[in-house]
Write a protein that binds this DNA or RNA. Structure first.
Lengths: 185, 185
DNA sequence: TTGGCAGCGTACCCTATGGTTCGGTCATGC
DNA sequence: GCATGACCGAACCATAGGGTACGCTGCCAA
């Protein structure tokens, strides 16, 4: 990940081995081939993300609005983190009509790990009578849009658009506040 | 562009020459080197986008809300079009800490061509007294977020998430309607 | 008619790189 | 003490692919 962040997606196996301070042979012993390295990278990032999300989601207590804010802060942190950016760059570089192995993996782990918790939270709000979410997929996209805007694209293109750690929570709070204008009963 | 769309960003110059039905030598005569081809691609797409935006923006008349809808539809069309996706994939693939030539170009043409018209439209609304936009950059991001949500990322990853041409206008209208809830006086 | 020029097709050069092999070293466990 | 196995460094192989050279064709203008 460090290498891709620094030198783009075109790094060689020799570079990877040097950075990992192991021999090329060991590298090929651990992973089947070059693509296997990237696949493992994607999977590792997905696992890492899962851990961070679970931590963020289970820690949050209190009113629904409070929890939404906590979730959103956590989401913003992950979405603007180096690891996710790098993994997405790799998957996008090889995405095309023919193959989309990595793209599928990234999309899958995303909807499984990120979308689902939000959808169930919306359900809860609907039952409580605090939210009026008819299409939860659409509501999730709206929240994501308000939270990130154009930032993810800019980060992918190499602009340093990551908010400082202090400004994460306020940004998320603002997004949630706006989202609630649209979806609160 | 066709090639990148079909086979990803790793295509060879020989493939490009074959697809363009010219010889490799002619290709190198037209462009300095491989990177020059991609740079030209990015520039050509920027010019194309400019044309489409000018057409969409100058054609729209009527009330501010009407014009916002027209702009947003045009923007949605461009953002989900093959050309923009491909160009962004190329730029993202080579984006890193060291070099970001293409990324800079893409970001620059974007803010120049897309953001500016919107910002001036917001200004107009402020003067009219119909809008209350304090931070126009932020307002633009909100509109973009409501319009696209997660769709751009999914398209980049290879999912076929482009709305049908009939559904463009309704989607844009809905986004604008929501945006106006947040920014109308 | 002829000279120039743009482009074509093909062959070619050469470096970078994915992937393998091999001799040697070190730690572990019997 | 010794077999095992993971790993290292370095050399090696094969191929792909960026970039170039060359000879030929067809077009156009003088």
């Amino acid at each position: 990940m460090r290498l891709v962040r620094r030198h783009g997606t075109g790094i060689s196996t020799a570079q990877i081995a040097a950075e990992a301070r192991c021999s090329k042979e060991t590298l090929y012993n651990w992973f089947d081939d070059r693509d296997g390295i990237f696949l493992a990278l994607v999977r590792a990032q997905a696992a890492e993300m899962n851990k961070a999300l679970l931590a963020g989601f289970s820690a949050s207590e209190g009113r629904l609005e409070e929890r939404l804010r906590a979730y959103a802060t956590c989401l913003l942190d992950i979405m603007t983190g180096d690891a996710l950016i790098v993994v997405n760059r790799i998957a996008m570089a090889q995405a095309c009509e023919d193959v989309s192995e990595l793209g599928q993996t990234v999309l899958g782990s995303w909807s499984q790990q990120v979308e689902k918790p939000f959808l169930s939270l919306f359900e809860e709000g609907n039952r409580n009578g605090t939210l009026a979410v008819h299409d939860s997929q659409e509501a999730f996209e709206a929240l994501l849009g308000l939270l990130l805007g154009d930032r993810f694209r800019r980060l992918l293109l190499g602009e340093d658009a990551r908010p400082s750690s202090e400004s994460m929570a306020p940004i998320a709070a603002k997004a949630v506040q706006r989202w609630l204008i649209l979806y609160r009963i």
